[in-house]
Design a protein around this nucleic acid. Sequence first.
DNA 1: TTGTAGGCGTTATCAA
DNA 2: TTGATAACGCCTACAA
Lengths: 339, 339
Amino acid sequence: MKHVTIKDVAKRLNVSVSSVSRAFNNKYDIKKETKELILSTAKEMGYYPNPIAKKLSQNKSLNIGVVVPEFINEYYSEIVIALQDVLISKGYQVLVMQSDEKPELELKNVETLIHSMTDGLIIAPTVGNNNMSYYLEQHNAGYPIVFLNRIDDSVAASKVIFNNVKWSFFATEHLIRQGYKKIYHLSGYKNLSVSKERIEGFKKAMFKHNVVKENYKIIEAGLLAEEGMEIIEDLIYNHDLPDAFFCVNDMVAMGAMKKLRDNGYSVPDDIAFIGFTETRMAELVTPQLSSVKQPTFKMAKAAAELLLKRIENANEPIETVVMNGELNIRESSINKALD
Amino acid sequence: MKHVTIKDVAKRLNVSVSSVSRAFNNKYDIKKETKELILSTAKEMGYYPNPIAKKLSQNKSLNIGVVVPEFINEYYSEIVIALQDVLISKGYQVLVMQSDEKPELELKNVETLIHSMTDGLIIAPTVGNNNMSYYLEQHNAGYPIVFLNRIDDSVAASKVIFNNVKWSFFATEHLIRQGYKKIYHLSGYKNLSVSKERIEGFKKAMFKHNVVKENYKIIEAGLLAEEGMEIIEDLIYNHDLPDAFFCVNDMVAMGAMKKLRDNGYSVPDDIAFIGFTETRMAELVTPQLSSVKQPTFKMAKAAAELLLKRIENANEPIETVVMNGELNIRESSINKALD
DNA sequence: TTGTAGGCGTTATCAA
DNA sequence: TTGATAACGCCTACAA
């Protein structure tokens, strides 16, 4: 597996390495015939420019790093796919690393990618991490970073976020309008910004519609189906079930629904449900789960574009893009008594 | 964002670049105090060895490419996570690219990775691709490649595969033993090797238990929930429903179950189900879905190890690792009439 | 134990 | 339009 190099091609044709380089880089200062000759024999010899060397000599890598907290759930898989889509089309290669929701691993990933001469980074931070100051330090030193999700509004960097407050408000209000009187929110880990925001939206809806304190509750569940199941167990044990649940995500909702079904409750007749960050499974469970759909592709595209802007011009002003979603009402939150 | 280089550190301390290099590479031919001094001031100056340069000068990248057909489904996400786990611990960086089930994109990905001086590749091929000859050409030229799944037994390269025939035989036999008389197999795309193998296992069980032709059927569905749903629609329309379905994967099973439920059928009372390549959702749907669990982590680990062997020694004989799984029986395939 | 110098495969600058 | 040569940042003989 010997790499054919630019020198081999040059020697074979008795031209200089610069000519070969020029031929491959579409420079104008080369005769057409020479170029074609070079290109064809290079191909014949199996020569490909070595990107590593290119990176070194140009001091840029055409690599972009992407760090996500996980990609077991569809959400970040889709984000990564969409990012690749955009960035590949611009000639970049995408290095994906996942942090398994561990802040320390995330930090290591980010360091690895920065020191690998990636031209920039898109980071979707893990829960409760203290790495932000390091990231911002890099950012302020001129290293292009764009953040995605789970990030505080106050961070002075370009970021793409979903309008969690607004859409959890809508989701909750939908439940209220369906006539459900007692509504609980199964929230995510409370140190997570998206959790806080979804809680905020939930509360806003409660206030707007003057729901009294006895008729709503916020319970910290988490992000996994199992965590939804556990909460339901407790609630059943305590005879403390509401008319409807608004859940921080579809997994928690599906876990909770499962546990209720197993205990003889019917959704939505006994208890209604709405999830968040719609998954493909939402349409496959019975009853189908209402949810808030996030514009995954658009968000990724926006992040990619913000990053490319910063790569091209380090002085580009920072920008925050706030995305909106879509409320998909399905069986799980339709109150038949309403008609 | 100026990179601090080895030279800067050397100059600052009035030592040679080689000393700095040695200090960072844990060579023994350097005095302990010098080393410590170098390391500490390097840290203070914010120096990190530039991996690109390292790669170039050592002619190896410590990068390993991973090409998967998709990572929307949990299966490949888990594979990638497990691969990362193993490879990172050995000092490699993992570049993940996904082919979106498109053979042309897969080829492009593989080329990109090979020309990026990755030290080797783990490929989980897409459906129906003609790229195999190119891959084998590279492989035979000495470039380390290990294949994962969806690959013919005849391919002369190291590979890790799941024993689909055996476990689809077991899954099918389980249905027979539960007393189901008429059993249909919803298969994957037929040009896919895993589909063929699962069909083969299904047939074997039928033959062994002398099930007559009228009592079984193989229907090409695909790999998506929607495809499972479509088939069920047809079958309902044609009044051609069996006692039980063995499905090529959980998504098809869940789609099919959904459609049946929507049409008033009960699982497993009217029709039983067993899936394949167990997903987390198997336990969350009602009824819980029986399935065959693949040892994702072990498979990835095996693939990583085969690759590392080949990287260390190009003459390492090729090896095929065949993995076994686990039959997880749940509500969807339990015949209550049996007791 | 340390330093010097050449090389890894490119691109870029300057001359020719 | 071409060629020679110095970078890019590191590693590694080989010499000291």
